[in-house]
Write a protein that binds this DNA or RNA. Structure first.
Lengths: 200, 200, 200, 200
DNA sequence: TATGAATGAGGTTTCATTCAT
DNA sequence: CATGAATGAAACCTCATTCAT
C-alpha cells in the first residue's frame, strides 16, 4: 500500500468513526506514521482527502451500477428462492453494504451529510435514490412474474425500502461490522422477503 | 426571555443546523448579543449548554410519556377513523415531531449521535425505543379490537415503525419545518394507516 | 498606551523596516510582550493591523490637508524669505516628513507599494499627487507675486517636485531619522529655493 | 534556452513583480515546468537564484560602463542636437532602462532594496552613483563646449538627475513596459533637454 | 538531469476558557 | 450580570530543503 493509499485508508477509518471535523491532520499522520508536512505532498489540503475518498466511492458505485443489469438476469443461486434475491445478496450486501470500503464510506456520509452539501447529495443518491430504483425494478419483475399486481408492487417497494433502511441503520452502521451482524442482517432481510412473498 | 433562555434558544438553533462542534461560543454570543465571557456566568462551559438542552428535552419527553395513557383512551376526534390515530396526531406530531423545541432537538440528536454517546442513547430512546413501544401498544389494542391477529400486529408494527422513520427523516428533519411539509407528512401517515387497515 | 496602540506602534516600526510579509505575528507579539492569541482579541487578522495603520494615516493626512489653506495665508516666520516657505516648513517637514508616525508610514508604503495595490494608491496620493498640488499652488502664488511667469512656474514646480522626491528618498527614508539628517534635508531644501528665486 | 536559463528567466519575472519573498520555489518550478527537487540540481538554494541574477546584472552593467567612453565621443545621430544625447539614448535607454533584462532587474532591485543590503548597494550604484557620474561627465563636456559655466553645470546635473529618476519611476518601473511608455519617456527626456539648453 | 517522497521549522488563526473589574 | 483582556492548546497549512533513485 502506498503512502497515499495508507493516508486515505486511515482517514476513512477515522472520519467514519468520529466525523471529518473531529479528526485532525495530526491524528491521521500519527496513525500513518508520517509528518504532517508529508501529507501535504500527497494531498492539497484536508478537504482534498475527503474529496479523494468520495471520488473513489463514486467510481466504485458507478462500477456497481454498471453491472446491475447482468446480475438481474442471472439465475438464482441455491437458497435463493425469488427473483431478485441474487441481486440483493450479491449487490446490496457483498459488494456494497458489507464491502469494507463502502461500509465505511456510508458511515462517513451518514455523519457528514449534516455538514457537507455535496456529501448529503451523494448519500441520498447512493442510499436512497439508487437502491430505490433497483428495488423498484425487482418488484416490477416480480409483478410481471405474477407474484402480485403492479399496484401492490408500488406500495411494497416503499415498505421494503423503509424496512431495509431500518435494518441497515440497525446492524451495519455502528460499531464494528462483525460476521455475526452481517448474518443477522441477512437473516432479517430473508425473513422479510419470505413474509412478503407468502402474503398473497 | 432571560439571557440564559436566549442562549439556549440560539444554541439549539445553531447546533441543530451545523452540529455542536461546528458552532463556536463566539457564534452563539454574537447572535445573542453578549460577550463570550458573559456566557460563562450562565453556563459552566460549552458542554453545559448542550447538557442543559438535553436535560430540558428529557423533562419534556417525560411529560409526554406521562400523558400517553390518558390520551390512548380518549375517543377519536372527527376525521380520525381508527383507534390510536388520536395519539399519533396529538402526540407524535403536535406535541413532538412538529413541536419546535423537540423538532430541533431531534435534528441536533440526529447529528450528534455520532459524536456523543449520551446523545446516541437519548436518540435511540426517544426516536426508536419509546415510539416503538407506544406504537406496539396501539397495534395490540387494534389486535384486541379484532382488526388483525396479534401475530400480524407484531409484524405490522415493525413495518409501520420503519415507514414512520423514513417519513420523519424525509419531511421533518432537514430544511425549515414549514406548514406544507407538516401537512404532507400527516397526509402520508394517514394514507399508510388507511392502507394497513384495509388490508384484511 | 493601550495594548492595541502598542501593537500598532510595534507593528509600524517593524513593517517599516522589514516589510509587512517579513514580519510575523510572533515577532510583533514578542516585542509587545503578549501571546499571539491576545493579538487576535484586538485585531481580526494580520491584514487588519495594516489596515488600521493606513486608516490612521489617512485621517492624519486629511487633518493636514484640511489645514493647508490657513497656513498658506499666514505671514512668513523669521528666516523665511519667500511666500510658501512657511507651508513647506510647517507642513511638509514638521507635520509630515519629520513627524514620526508619518515618516514610518511613508517608509512602510514605499516598501509595500509593490505588494499591495491599496497602498500603492495611498503612496501615490500622499507622496505625489497631494504634495504636487500644494507645490503647484505655492508656485502659482509666487507667479502672481511676480517672482516669475506662470509658464515658468509650471516647469519649476515639476523640477522642484522631482528634486524634493530625491532629497526625501536620500535623507528621510532609510536608517534612523536623526536630528542631523533632518537638518541636512532642511538645508538642501532651503538652498534649492534660494537658487530658484535668484535665477531671474 | 537551457533549464537553468529558464529558471532564471521565470524567477526574474516573478521576483520583479511580486518580490523575492513572495515568490516560492513552487511558483517558479510550476511555471518552468519542473519539480522542486530539480531546481536544486541547478541552484544551491533560493538565494542562489537571486545571486545568479545579480551576478549576471553586474556583468551586464560592467560591459555597459566599459563602452561608455567610446560612445561619448561618437558623433550625434540625426535628430540628436546636443552633445551627450547619443549616450542618453543609446546607453541609458536602449541598452539599459528599456533593455528587458535590465528593466526587470531594476524593478527587482527597487523592491528588494528594502529587504537585502547587497541589493540596496547595487541599486544605489546602478541607479544613482553610476548614472550620476555619467551625467556629470556629459554636463562637464557641455560646460567645456561653452553651453554653460561649470558652476551652472554642477547644479544642472543634480536637477537633471532628479528629474530623470522621477520619469523613470513614472514610466518604466510599473506595469508592462510598452512601446508607448518608452516613447513617452523618451519624449519627456528630450523636452527636458531642450528646456535646459535654451535657458541661457 | 530529473523526480518522488519526506521533513523541520515556522506561519496565521480559532477556540474554549479564566479572571479581575 | 456583564465585560475587557488575556491565554494555552491546537488547528491547518506553506516553505525551503534533502536525499535516494
Amino acid at each position: 500500500m502506498t503512502t497515499k493509499e495508507k493516508i486515505m485508508d486511515v482517514a476513512l477509518h477515522m472520519f467514519s468513526e468520529r466525523g471529518y471535523e473531529a479528526v485532525s491532520i495530526r491524528d491521521i499522520c500519527g496513525e500513518v506514521g508520517i509528518k504532517e508536512s508529508t501529507l501535504y505532498y500527497h494531498f492539497k489540503n484536508k478537504k482534498d482527502i475527503l474529496d479523494s475518498l468520495t471520488a473513489k466511492f463514486r467510481e466504485h458505485i458507478e462500477g456497481l451500477l454498471g453491472g446491475v443489469d447482468e446480475i438481474a438476469d442471472e439465475p438464482a443461486a441455491e437458497g435463493q428462492e425469488f427473483v431478485g434475491e441474487k441481486m440483493m445478496d450479491t449487490y446490496m450486501m457483498d459488494s456494497y453494504l458489507f464491502e469494507p470500503f463502502c461500509n465505511l464510506m456510508i458511515r462517513l456520509m451518514m455523519i457528514e451529510q449534516f455538514h457537507n452539501e455535496e456529501i448529503r447529495e451523494l448519500y441520498e443518491k447512493t442510499m436512497f435514490t439508487d437502491p430505490y430504483e433497483i428495488q423498484m425494478d425487482i418488484f416490477m419483475r416480480l409483478a410481471k412474474a405474477g407474484t402480485f399486481t403492479e399496484n401492490e408492487a408500488k406500495w411494497l417497494v416503499r415498505d421494503y425500502h423503509a424496512y431495509m433502511n431500518m435494518l441497515t441503520y440497525k446492524y451495519l452502521l455502528n460499531g464494528e461490522l462483525t460476521e455475526e451482524r452481517k448474518q443477522r442482517y441477512a437473516k432479517e432481510v430473508h425473513e422479510y422477503m419470505q413474509r412478503i412473498m407468502k402474503r398473497q
